[in-house]
Nucleic acid binder design. Sequence first.
RNA 1: GCCGACGUAGCUCAAUCGGCAGAGCAACCGCCUUGUAAGUGGUAGGUUACGGGUUCAAUUCCCGUCGUCGGCUCCA
Length: 604
Amino acid sequence: MPEETQQRYEDSDLYRIRHSAAHVMAQAVLEFYPEAKYTIGPPVENGFYYDFDLPRPLTAEDLEKIEKRMRQIIAGGHVFTKKVVSAEEAHQIFKDQPYKLDLIDGLEKGGFDEYGQPLAEKPEISIYQHDTFTDLCRGPHVENTRKINPSAIKLMSIAGAYWRGDEKNKMLTRLYGTAWKTAQELEEYLAMLEEAKKRDHRKLGKELEIFIYEDEVGPGLPLWLPHGGVMIEELEKLAKEMEEKAGYVRVRTPHLAKEALFLHSGHLPYYAESMYPPMEIEGVKYYVKPMNCPMHHKIFGSKPRSYRELPIRLAEYGTCYRYEKSGELFGLMRVRSMQMNDAHMYCSEDQFEQEFMGVIDLYHKYFELFGIQKFVMRLSLHGKEGLGKKYVDNERLWLKTEAMVRRAMTNGGVPFVEAYDEAAFYGPKIDVQIWSTIGKEFTLATNQVDFAQPGRFGLVFMNKNGVEETPLCIHRAPLSTHERMIGFLLEHYAGNFPVWLSPEHVRVIPITDNQNEYAEGIVRQLREQGIRASADLSAQRMNAKIREAQLMKVPYMLVVGENEANAGTVSLRVRDGSQQNNIPLAEFVVRAKDRIARRAKELF
RNA sequence: GCCGACGUAGCUCAAUCGGCAGAGCAACCGCCUUGUAAGUGGUAGGUUACGGGUUCAAUUCCCGUCGUCGGCUCCA
């Protein structure tokens, strides 16, 4: 990306427009609710928001009223004026605004800006005024309200948000808005949102019969329909091929284990809130596993290990259960039952870099196969304050392993960003960040260093010098979980999967019922060749059958009428709408099998 | 979990002020025998998420529970 040549968002006109629109919105809200307390209102990607502490909840009608009033304020052409003030003056101006006073204290002490973000230096305190509204603000703004295009703004939604983003604090009312330079830009943005909704995996998952949720089963517990089942099989086949080539071995472990195991691993103290509560049998507590690692550690420790057999790579598509808070569930992207593309690699310190980069290499192979281009690799580091709480209390090992990962990534020439205070409790990690079609951020793949658990489990191997040494462990899940991967792929391909991943490869469409028998014969032959095929023998006309197959995004439609039946050929209609008539069936089979076997990007 | 909105047939959606719950598609039974995105007639389909309340009368108003959605927080 040519980031250097791009203007920073903070310096752009749109940023000023949105920031100013947020102030105008706040003015309008305060006019309707003079007793409201206002907090912060920054520009964000595609728009802006403002958080208020309001006497009552807002409704959709309120949004309309506020938006209308905003247009009136804009038309007033009020000038934005900046004034630098002392902390005392600021206290006086905002004496009735407790949240502002809180922010001023942050500015005064230094260390935090007006949005509560950490700052390197103590900033000056400034206010911006326009018309009747005064805000604690460092700007920048447009010169006057007329610079906001009244036909290019729109209030989008009402949401809750905690003060300072902390769930222990009061829940405020957040108003989201969007603002652009022109009405056309606004229209395009809204159209883009509509388009994004069409590829939402929850919608496509239902339409393409991939998965469902059932009230009686439970939230976050998806039921995979036959089409989803096929996709899972294909992903597992892919992973197994790749992992076998890379020297992994497969293991299988149970869904439950005694409390003692998770105490031993250190998960319970850090993770109990995300685990399903224990069940007690014969006086012993059992937990449903939230991850596979403790069991894999037990397998590693099941016999004496020599440096000669390292690295040992234990792989398992293990099903895990995590008690995610109800409001956090989201389609397939955030679930409570998940099957992870999991493996644990045990290696010596001098093998670490090669092993770690071997995983990164695997990522790249998968991303190339799927054509994934928009992602960011994040190196997640520990936070000093969390040592002994969120993180294993051993700063020396944290710094050491973080440096190892940083060096490995740098030596491998893989671009990454660093994220402070986002590590796993047992070590630093590389997460692959992606975005859902409606803009939610997710970790797809993950690759984590574990310097804590092997020691806790007393895992050792005999090194060259005949001395016992503790291995490092790398946790990795390049294909994430079945749930998240399929959710992501649905959106990534908008349901138009490459042939190998398509739940149905071929739909045979007889033109009249005189060709039903011929169609069924074709299906038998295709299945014999490992091609997923079915015939549409319904009483509908050909056009309706084609339409249905198109809507289900079946890559190959084989239309057969009298001519084809007599000649032993098929008329191929590809999902992209192209057509090739009178192909001998054998020829179609050869080409289709080739596309499937190669996991080709092209259809035919 | 928190704030807010929503929940009607398998799916997508109607139902005025509280007054007999409706359509299209799908399903089923026929007719049509069809050449690359919906041929046509009929039949059936509902405890309006669940439980309570107000009322002569509740899809509609009120309370609770469950679930979904938009955010916040948290995460593979």
